[in-house]
Design a protein around this nucleic acid. Structure first.
Lengths: 121, 121
DNA sequence: CAAATTGTGTATGTTGTGTATGCACAATAT
DNA sequence: ATATTGTGCATACACAACATACACAATTTG
């Protein structure tokens, strides 16, 4: 459980959890079959409610990243490296398109965006 | 009033309005002193409530982009090209940093991000 | 010029949606 | 049986969006 949540963030807590766990799975840091911590324990560690953790885990389940088994726990799903890459790219591109349209609305060119990115990345 | 709002967007309507008007001002499409449409008329055109428009206009006021005069209207503020650029970059960089941290969480390098951006921009 | 009218932004109260919570329940493992 | 796991339900709170009524400024008009 290497997670950091920010109460000041504009993003909901459950979404922060979802994004960070997703990234860890898709980076290969959490292997297939790995058992996530019980929601109570996670909630205790992260100082949030059980419900909030559950909601994040539900999102992971819906995205096909984990399998939930009542009474046992939540396990990182099995998928091929190809599929893993596909999901990863899908999530990233989905977000990136939204980001790009924001930049475009300010009249930024691709080169300008790249220039700014180089400064802050 | 060249605005398009999406009810299906995850972003609040007032924020969509704020972002689009901001961009138009900072692109120079709306000149200093230009009088924004009355909130009633804007609300009617956009098929939203007066309150929603007012909230967006309030954000613009707070950002220093417009001046509101009760009984007269809301006018695009006067600022130097330098200041205009400063505000623009501030808004964009602010968003971009958040975007970048998302990409980083997936382990993307700067080059990978640039590569993907080139594909979709 | 003063009163009425029109046009502008403003404030109040209500409804609906979504985040986050605690506590009680169901299913599973040992 | 008992402990451990996930699940369901009722609630509190915050916020977006709404309709309506209000207050102020400019204009018309007698």
């Amino acid at each position: 459980m290497n997670i950091s949540i920010s109460s000041t963030s504009e993003k909901p807590i459950y979404q922060q959890l979802f994004e960070q766990i997703s990234a860890q799975i898709l980076k290969g840091e959490l292997e297939s079959g790995y058992c996530l911590p019980p929601i109570r324990q996670a909630a205790l560690e992260l100082r949030v409610s059980v419900i909030t953790v559950k909601k994040a885990w539900e999102e992971l389940e819906r995205s096909g990243l984990i399998n939930t088994v009542t009474g046992k726990g939540c396990f990182v799903a099995e998928f091929s490296p190809d599929e893993m890459l596909r999901i990863r790219n899908e999530m990233i591109l989905n977000q990136m398109e939204s980001d790009a349209s924001y930049y475009k609305s300010f009249g930024l060119t691709l080169d300008e965006v790249i220039e700014l990115l180089k400064e802050i990345y």
